[in-house]
Design a protein around this nucleic acid. Structure first.
Length: 959
RNA sequence: GCGAGGGUAGCCAAGCUCGGUCAAAGGCGACAGACUCAAGAUCUGUUCUCGCAGGAGUCCCCCGGUUCAAAUCCGGGCCCUCGCACCA
């Protein structure tokens, strides 16, 4: 009989939610478990990959619920930022891809026009996430606590957080250079291109702007990434085709390209274009280099790009292949030389000057590389490659040579910053920021780097904060372990982080200055707390305008007394006390689970804000990082709308099959490709289990047998292992046992003639409980069939009762199954069709020797001692065998782990076990089976195989 | 570049923290058999090579080292993936 997945999913979800099994209230004295997953940003539909982390969270929470914990597992969404705004804009202009995604998900034209409003977009997707994803998957989340970051009450919480950061001295202000659109303000440069229409992979480059003084006092400003090469300057490049301008900067006049002047104006105060400047007229003239004060000649070059840097370039032919090739080309270009009057003497003055010792190169790497590669023209596309090669080695491995003055002997990497600093200090240079490629805003305007003079930062560089956070992180349960170790480095590396931004964004206005909006990472650090309070706001027990600083101070920091706070807020004292008690009950957060992208972004600030603002007893306890589900042949990205819409997949495969897929397909800490066939096979597995269970429930009761005790023993092992795995949140091993190993045990039981309805029923109940965290709908359906009261989901999973006797029961069956393996192996290799199998258990003395070896304790067994102690009592014919056997046993025992020792000590009466199992074996191999002890003088052993018998491994003879 | 993770049999994926229980779990695929009118359903077995006795040989990206013993530890190399800050 097939399972109707959608039907049972709906049935149990209705039942759970109407019985409010998913809702959480504090219960003093009962241990609590508080878990969240990092809430998703509201930027469109999610895809099947996102459900991995969410599902794992739900499974953990469900397990905790079944093991005595009062659990809290709230969910929410992150609407801050421009995701919803840009989505609304795409809808507004009826972007075909966006419209297509929406309509294929069933949106009407009416809904479409509603979604032109960003707030409606947020509302719309909040509904989708809640209903189509999380409820659809049967999560045990307390829906009453749902919150979203642009809800008015949540915003009050963020305001409070910023005030506390300031109070702790963790807010600082300083200038900042950000990519910005002239019209829309700062934009994010990011490959997913939420803000921009072009240039997602651009970077902000830090140029040094070096000033070269002309005879008339004006200054040519050249932008370079390598200021330390100032010592190797030989000439200057100007493009006669480019339009330059004279720009007044403070009390100086700079010559730069018109485009560069515009950029400078955004980054420096007091920049004004006063005149145009003719590049051609400069050529042939001289200018004075900064720092070295060397006089160099100005030459023409077509390579100066007015959009890159300042459109003016300083020339270092020793280390820049482009400069060297430029000089070579110029030397051979008589036409140009004639036009600008460039003489051989001038060119000779521009001969390369060696400045850097680069491992693997001579004194002039650029000359060397271009000659080796045979590059002689600026049009040669391999110039880029040559530049990269020289730059890379020179910058990271090079050392400044004796021609670099005070910096001789410095590593280039260090010299770069030091030289720049000195030049800036002396007024010979300035900083200049530019993008590595053209970036266009969604509106079509150019994105440029703009100085923001009074940017606010959270000071994650604060030494005390950093130290406490690192120390606390060591005590946290952080998985995977690699991240537990690495987060130390991440925290160490953290520095100030911009926490507010200008522009058209959804989010909380910055309480210290409402031109700013609190930035999207900064408003999502303490938020687990807010789930505790959201219930009260959602139920109308407090209004946003009442949630002021005294309110949060009282509830979260325990400041003030309830009467005063009630006056200051207008909130009922009962509500205040309850909220505070509830916070104290649930906090700290036990687990925050999120994708690997959070490792260097969200998790560190999440931790540090807790440490910075809250009392130590409220600092978070654990972090779990999950890796991704990807699509075959590339990421299934959110922006592309999702290769596999979640409701569709749920419909096709069933929620439980997907949940099992997420739990079992691989360790959480590797990326896994989504494959329909894989999910389908989990669906098959679930149906197989269902059919098996139904058959078992309907089975006829049979007589008690000797495997009953074995199955009971196995149940104890299932439970013990389940708890052990979940202790480590190792869902995969847990699922492997529950969905694959356990069914094997049932099959073995039946095969061995087990028939007790009672024993099977007992085992089925435990099995069902074990399934409940991962495949809850299936488990409930089975639980109901078993006649159990609602619900398996909140039934209690007891702890295991393993004893010596359960060990023995398991050892007994292990003996049989390994015996079957051995016999089958012999039959397979020899191709004998057996008419008779003779089994001979090890003689008594071998057991004694093994026991003796095992009792030897830690120092292990000594062969000599074993032989000496066993010899006297041995029958004559065994004495020859003893030394070899003792040696084998000694080495075997020597390398046993404690676990193996325990098992080996739990040996069973093999003769009896085999005699009892004789019929079973005869049935299995369809032939006669004879059982002897090797001690038995009447045994049937024509080939003298009895000597091979060892404890746990009877000798075998087949014919 | 900086930082992190990884390369295991046809494929996916455990194992590596604590070296021996590892020819290396499990799943998928493939092959064979059983049950069947039949099957893409289910069950059983096989799936590195050799083997008419439960075994042997070779193996866990490559090279080298430590060790009685290495998939596991150390060094070097090649290759892949990911994060890098105002992007959630």
């Amino acid at each position: 009989m097939a399972l109707d997945f959608p039907q049972i999913e709906a049935k149990w979800q209705d039942a759970w939610y109407s019985a409010r099994v998913n809702e959480s209230e504090p219960e003093q004295g009962k241990p609590k478990f508080f878990m969240i997953f990092a809430y998703p940003g509201v930027t469109g539909y999610l895809h099947v990959g996102h459900m991995r982390g969410y599902t794992v969270s739900d499974a953990i929470v469900r397990y905790k619920l079944m093991t005595g914990y009062n659990v809290l597992f709230p969910v929410g969404t992150h609407a801050t930022g421009n995701g919803a705004i840009s989505f609304a804009r795409r809808v507004e202009r009826r972007d075909p891809a966006t419209v297509d995604i929406l309509t294929s998900n069933g949106c009407s034209e009416e809904t479409l026009s509603r979604l032109e409003d960003p707030l409606e977009v947020v509302r719309f997707f909040n509904g989708i996430y809640l209903n189509d994803y999380w409820k659809r998957f049967g999560f045990f989340s307390d829906w009453r606590r749902f919150t979203s970051t642009i809800n008015p009450d949540y915003m009050r919480f963020i305001e409070w957080q910023m005030l506390k950061l300031r109070a702790e001295g963790l807010l600082i202000q300083k200038p900042y250079y950000a990519a910005a659109c002239v019209e829309h303000g700062p934009v994010a440069i990011d490959a997913s291109e939420t803000d921009i229409s072009k240039g997602g992979s651009a970077e902000v480059l830090e140029y040094s702007l070096l000033k070269f003084e002309l005879e008339d006092g004006r200054k040519l400003a050249a932008a370079t990434l390598r200021p330390e090469t100032v010592f190797g300057l030989t000439n200057f490049w100007v493009n006669p085709e480019v339009e330059y301008v004279d720009a007044r900067v403070g009390d100086e006049t700079w010559v730069v390209s018109r485009q560069a002047a515009e950029k400078l104006a955004l980054q420096m105060d007091d920049v004004e274009v006063v005149d145009s400047a003719d590049g051609g007229s400069l050529i042939g003239k001289s200018c004075k280099a900064p720092y070295t004060e060397k006089t160099i000649r100005i030459f023409p070059s077509a390579l100066c790009d007015p959009d890159v840097g300042t459109g003016l370039v300083m020339s270092v032919p020793s280390d820049a292949p482009v400069d060297w090739v430029g000089l070579v080309e110029l030397r051979g270009d008589s036409l140009v030389r004639k036009e600008y009057g460039i003489t051989d003497a001038m060119l000779n003055e521009a001969a390369p000057v060696a400045i850097i010792d680069t491992p693997g190169y001579g004194p002039l790497p650029a000359v060397e590389v271009t000659e080796r590669m045979g590059i002689s023209s600026l049009d040669d596309p391999r110039l880029d490659e040559a530049t990269r090669e020289v730059y890379k080695t020179g910058f990271h491995k090079g050392v400044m040579n004796s021609s670099s003055g005070d910096f001789a002997g410095w590593h280039v990497e260090r010299a770069k910053d030091a030289v720049r600093e000195q030049m800036i200090e002396s007024g010979a240079a300035a900083m200049f920021y530019d993008l590595s490629e053209e970036v266009l805003c969604r509106c079509g305007n150019k994105v440029l780097v703009k100085k923001i003079p009074d940017q606010w930062f959270i000071d994650y560089g604060n030494a005390a904060l950093k130290e406490s956070s690192k120390e606390h992180a060591l005590t946290m349960k952080i998985l995977p372990k690699e991240y537990h170790d690495n987060i130390q480095n991440v925290l160490e590396w953290y520095r100030e982080r911009a926490c507010v931004r200008l522009g058209n964004w959804l989010g909380t206005p910055f309480p210290l200055d409402d031109r700013w909006i609190v930035e999207a990472i900064a408003d999502s650090t303490l938020y687990p707390i807010y789930y505790v309070l959201a219930k009260y706001a959602n139920e109308g027990l407090m209004r946003p305008e009442e949630m002021n600083e005294p309110f949060f101070d009282y509830v979260l920091l325990g400041r003030g007394d309830v009467q005063t706070v009630a006056c200051a807020t207008g909130i009922d004292t009962k509500v205040l006390s309850a909220a505070r008690a509830e916070f104290e009950y649930w906090y700290p957060l036990d687990i925050n689970l999120g994708g690997k992208e959070h490792m260097t972004v969200h998790f560190p600030v999440f931790l540090m804000n807790h440490v910075g603002i809250l009392r130590q007893e409220h600092w978070p306890m654990g972090i779990i990082v999950n890796w991704y589900i990807t699509a075959t042949g590339g990421k299934i990205s959110k922006s592309k709308g999702g290769a596999q819409p979640i409701p569709d997949a749920a419909e096709r495969f069933g929620v439980d099959a997907m949940r099992l897929f997420y739990a079992h397909i691989a360790s959480l800490y590797v990326d896994v490709a989504w494959e329909d066939e894989k999910v389908q096979s989990y669906r098959d597995r679930i149906e197989r289990i269902w059919n098996f269970v139904v058959d078992s429930i309907e089975m006829n009761d049979g007589p008690a047998s000797d495997v009953d005790a074995w199955l009971r023993a196995r149940v104890e092992s299932w439970i013990a292992e389940a708890h052990a795995y979940m202790e480590q949140y190792d869902l995969r091993s847990y699922a492997n046992n529950v969905y694959f190993e356990i069914s094997q045990d049932f099959k073995w039981y039946l095969r061995r003639g087990g028939a007790s309805k009672e024993v099977v029923g007992e085992a089925l109940r435990t099995w069902t409980q074990l399934m409940a965290p991962i495949t809850p709908h299936l488990a409930e359906e089975i639980w109901e069939r078993l006649g159990m009261p609602r619900f398996v989901s909140n039934s209690q999973l007891r702890s295991a009762r393993r004893t010596e006797s359960t060990e023995l029961e398991e050892a007994k069956e292990r003996l049989l199954s390994s015996l079957i393996t051995d016999i089958s192996e012999i039959l397979r290799v020899t191709s004998i069709k057996p008419s008779k199998v003779v089994l001979m258990t090890a003689p008594r003395w071998k057991n004694d020797v093994l026991d003796n070896a095992l009792s030897g304790g830690e120092e292990g067994a000594d062969v000599g001692r074993l032989v000496k102690e066993a010899m006297p009592s041995l029958p004559q014919d065994a004495r020859k065998e003893l030394p070899a056997f003792a040696k084998a046993v000694a080495s075997e025992v020597g390398r046993m782990s404690p676990d193996e020792r325990r098992r080996a000590s739990a040996r069973v009466d093999e003769l009896t076990v085999l005699r009892v199992a004789k019929e079973f074996l005869e049935d299995y191999f369809r032939c006669e089976v004879l059982v002897f002890s090797a001690d038995d003088t009447a045994k049937l052993d024509p080939e003298n195989r009895a000597r091979q018998a060892r404890p746990g491994r009877p000798a075998i003879h087949v014919e």
